[in-house]
Nucleic acid binder design. Structure first.
Lengths: 215, 215
DNA sequence: ATTACTATGTACCGAGTAA
DNA sequence: TTTACTCGGTACATAGTAA
């Protein structure tokens, strides 16, 4: 019996975001003992996964944001598993801060890009404003390549997750990589794309142009 | 670490329905030991949840139908949790075999219907042909009331799951109950509705008429 | 009726190692 | 390198109760 089973059980029984129940009922439903449920719920509470108010006649349970985030990830994986249709997200091109160009030029990254992705990226990233939930849906379930973090004598550089996507731009389909730095600096509603070439130059893109990413 | 974590992990890494990996890689990803993964995978295999072929350089894993069914249920729960929009399924009215009427008349059922649903159903069920996957989506996550099985001196009667739904019929919204016998006799693409009145009489329904169920 | 403590037995995890 | 044994130690589940 893992935390996940508990969270999924609560999810399935929620009404208006709240579940009123008792440890014995949950124990019966989940085929375990009242004591185990009592302990598990305390564990979940300590782990910041649920909020609980205990009353003489039972308990009221709710899921926390943390739990919902975890469940959202699993939902994305399952949606991906059961949907045959390809999914897409559109993004609007916006100006970056030139950070992308700086990092792409670091040798420790370049070497790994070449080895793990098979190409050396153009020195710059394409920043897209997107719906973060929709992006999660596409990236989760997609297998990622991990660029490891490393250190130089001056500083440390964090790892990067790389997801292969297909991008529809000016009527053409182009392969690209969505990069997600482990210590990301910007909001989750901006993602960065890299490719062996300059998207802006090759397709004459400007801020505000819309691209569609397809899984 | 429960089976579910293993299944979800595999789901997230599947490519074309197959995952090629090693126990060590999985152990790192799932933050446990190689030995635990080895044992867990054997357990999952024994439980009929995965199929495995072990090679000198690793393993190839796939999910079985049984595992997919379990995951589908969780997916339905999560979809329900994260979707604010109401979901609907349409069904086409078809003739039953009169079985519904027979069972509705059994005292052991009637008493429980009255106590647990608050009404005594009309003596007959409305049979609807539906898309079984879509129905799963609506019923899962919806809380159910369980009518217990029982025995008489002659025979035993199985339990029934009851789901409250709203039905759109001839422009009106009516509450009804979807009943799912634990030992169901017909295919999953036919469901049965009960209500305190006769749908056919009250709304002048005929075979082939379309109803919409809303969660 | 609840929830949740303590004590005890068991099942699980992982280090070491074989194949 | 693999996967998967055996075997300790520990963490977990439950019975018995308290509150």
């Amino acid at each position: 019996m893992g935390d996940l089973e508990i969270l999924l059980y609560i999810s399935s029984k929620l009404e208006e975001g709240i579940l009123s129940t008792t440890t014995s009922v949950m124990a019966t439903d989940l085929d375990t003992s009242q004591q185990t449920i009592s302990r598990k719920l305390r564990d979940c509470e300590d782990a910041g996964l649920i909020q609980r108010s205990v009353t003489p006649s039972g308990m009221r349970l709710q899921l926390t944001e943390k739990a919902l985030d975890i469940l959202k990830k699993h939902h994305a994986v399952l949606t991906n598993l059961f949907s045959n249709t390809t999914q897409s997200v559109s993004g609007v091109l916006q100006s970056g801060l030139g950070e992308g160009r700086y990092y792409m030029a670091i040798e420790g990254y370049q070497k790994q890009f070449r080895d793990k992705l098979g190409f050396i990226p153009f020195l710059g990233t394409l920043n897209l404003a997107v719906n973060s939930h929709a992006v999660d849906m596409i990236l989760q379930g997609n297998s990622k390549k991990i660029i490891d973090g490393f250190e130089t004598s001056e500083r440390t550089y964090g790892g990067i997750d790389c997801y292969r996507v297909s991008v529809e731009v000016k009527g053409k389909n182009v392969n690209a990589i969505v990069i997600v730095p482990h210590r990301t600096t910007h909001e989750k509603n901006v993602i960065e794309l890299i490719a062996p070439f300059s998207f802006r130059e090759k397709f004459g893109l400007e801020d505000g142009d819309e691209l569609v990413m397809v899984k």
